[in-house]
């Protein structure tokens, strides 16, 4: 079996067995990265385009390595949204790439829905590498993989996601993914950072961090967008950090063997203290390593489905 759609746009559209397939495929591909020669010929002759309309080092590099380790040809295109020539739409750009026979287009865009709209118009496979506040499916799959690797499974685990849920694509994708896989998902943060109707996604909402951490197996910290202070979402970094920052004292409310996760980049001392980010509970670097295997799996499965 393969993936049902031609694209990976979000976790919301994925079925549970598709998620399982991606994670299992990633597991068998992870070994490639530890070889002396980190390459398999699976995607020889295929072209993958990284189309990034928003600055990103981590995700772009991760996709780049994933494509290269599968022997695909890779093209990196970074376009500052502000400098897009007036009159040339996203569709124009993408159609040009398709005319150049790109097999897979990996897109990062500041506008929610840009990958969806693109995918409808193109025959190429589209992978969403993060769109606005909508979804970041490969990050969530990476997080699932990392949790599964450490905990042996996902069902029944208590996972607490902390921070600006309203503006976080990582949070949305993780909520869909974790709920589908049977985890007990909690979200924590001030009410100004909770989007309307979030409880309808099957999560429990907490405004008290200690309570939200109580008995948790996994704590997922989100990056605080510091500029949102000016939008009246929180009063100051000081108060945010005091109420919703994770430190070792607080972590004691969670289970002893709780994992600490962060999609990066970390604001050290704001949402998480340095000692925790680098501590024994932290799997932040595992997330980075696993990200490559998961993205290899996604590229491989989408490409295989089209062969």
């Amino acid at each position: 079996m393969g993936l049902k759609g031609k694209d990976l746009l979000g976790i919301r559209e994925l079925e549970t067995d598709e998620i399982g397939l991606i994670l299992d495929t990633a597991e068998s591909l992870k070994e490639v990265s530890s070889r002396d020669i980190k390459k398999v010929p699976a995607l020889r002759g295929k072209t993958v385009v990284n189309l990034f309309f928003e600055p990103s080092t981590r995700t772009r590099t991760s996709f780049e390595l994933a494509a290269k380790r599968l022997s695909a040809d890779l093209l990196n295109i970074s376009i500052a949204t502000s400098s897009v020539v007036k009159g040339e739409t996203l569709f124009d750009t993408a159609k040009n790439l398709e005319a150049m026979m790109a097999d897979i287009i990996v897109i990062r865009h500041s506008s929610s829905g840009a990958p969806d709209r693109l995918a409808r118009r193109l025959k190429s496979s589209v992978i969403n590498a993060g769109d606005g506040s909508h979804e970041h499916p490969t990050q969530a799959l990476t997080d699932l993989y990392t949790i599964r690797e450490r905990k042996g499974g996902l069902s029944g685990l208590i996972v607490t996601i902390v921070g600006d849920i309203a503006h976080s694509r990582v949070a949305r994708s993780n909520i869909y993914a974790l709920v589908k896989m049977g985890a007990d998902v909690r979200v924590a943060g001030p009410p100004t950072m909770m989007p309307a109707g979030i409880d309808k996604l099957g999560v429990r909402v907490y405004h008290d961090l200690d309570e939200a951490l109580s008995g948790a197996d996994v704590v997922m910290m989100l990056r605080l967008q510091l500029e949102r202070q000016g939008k009246a979402l929180f009063p100051s970094i000081r108060e945010y950090s005091r109420l919703y920052g994770l430190n070792s004292e607080r972590l004691k409310f969670a289970k002893k063997d709780a994992l600490v996760m962060h999609p990066g980049p970390v604001n050290r001392g704001v949402e998480i203290t340095s000692d925790l980010a680098d501590g024994v509970s932290s799997v932040i670097m595992d997330q980075v390593t696993n990200g490559i295997a998961v993205r290899m799996a996604v590229i491989y499965l989408l490409s295989a489905g089209r062969a």
């Binding site: 919301r12 929610s112 829905g113 769109d131 606005g132 909508h134 949305r172 309307a196 109707g197």
Partner: peptide
């Protein structure tokens, strides 16, 4: 409109 659909789509809502 601000609500569950804007939350799902990740679009900024108008209350």
């Amino acid at each position: 409109n601000e609500g569950i659909i804007s939350t799902r789509l990740g679009l900024h809502g108008i209350p």
